[in-house]
């Protein structure tokens, strides 16, 4: 469904992504993991059109969409931190998104209702707490029934109840055949929600496997242990290189 073809990106002299090749299919739930600065945010930003790659192509349904914007109607995105125009009301934000997306009236109101946004729809966005803003962002991401969901630290800032509601919704949409791309540092969430793990480091894909296989390979029943081993392994190899040098 989504293909990154030989994607590279540098910010000045810093090579953030280095020839990334990845393919994500309908119905998959993928965790994108990596240490800070490994390029996972940049990878998602390229998918979302926020960052333009230096090299390579982004394909959606085998069509090159690198220089277009319409394909983004297929994507629902929930950012890690949301900041909306201060003097708009919640209802106006949704109205605006409806106009941008030229939606046909087939809205997914599950989260909108579960988070009881209808009761506060006349509130100004600037008056909302951080958690409520995240609820609005989550409801917006799912609202237009997009076949692809990109969630950046989706549970950060949500209270435990809202967290559970969101996770249940994520699982439900996945079983309906939607593609999920999730980054999170909360590994237990990833373990619950995803079955494929893409581990990025220094702008390259180091591991791309099913979580069940990974756990079996490393003889661990806990994803965080596996990640810890992956990170340590990388540190060892880089110190080895230093010793050789």
């Amino acid at each position: 469904m989504i293909t990154f073809e030989n994607i590279s990106k540098a910010f000045g002299k810093l090579q953030v992504l280095n020839g990334i090749n990845l393919r994500f299919n309908r119905g998959e739930a993928v965790a994108i993991v990596g240490p800070n600065g490994s390029g996972k945010t940049t990878l998602l930003k390229i998918l979302l059109g926020m960052v333009l790659p230096d090299e390579g192509r982004l394909l959606m349904n085998d069509e090159d969409v690198s220089k277009t914007s319409d394909y983004r109607s297929q994507i629902g995105y929930m950012p890690q931190i949301s900041k909306f125009p201060s003097n708009l009301r919640i209802s106006q934000l949704f109205d605006m998104m409806k106009e941008i997306r030229q939606a046909n009236g087939q809205y997914d109101l599950d989260l909108y209702e579960a988070f009881e946004l209808e009761t506060i729809k006349d509130k100004y966005l600037s008056s909302l707490s951080g958690g409520t803003k995240q609820k609005v962002a989550a409801a917006l991401a799912f609202y237009f029934n997009p076949p692809v969901l990109v969630l950046d630290e989706p549970t950060a800032g949500l209270d435990p109840l809202a967290c559970e509601i969101l996770k249940n919704k994520i699982r439900l949409e996945n079983t309906k055949g939607k593609l999920l791309l999730i980054t999170s540092h909360i590994l237990s969430d990833l373990e619950e929600l995803t079955e494929r793990l893409v581990y990025l480091q220094d702008g390259r894909v180091h591991v791309d496997r099913s979580i069940t296989d990974l756990k079996a390979d490393y003889g661990q029943n806990n994803l965080s242990r596996v990640i810890a081993i992956l990170m340590k392994k990388k540190e060892m190899t880089s110190s080895d290189i230093l010793q050789v040098a």
Binding site: L48, M50, S69, R72, P79, I100
Partner: peptide, 15 residues
């Protein structure tokens, strides 16, 4: 101040 909102708009199907 609108940086995050501009980013959100850039992820929508709009040029």
């Amino acid at each position: 101040n609108a940086t995050e909102f501009t980013e959100l708009l850039a992820t929508q199907p709009i040029g």
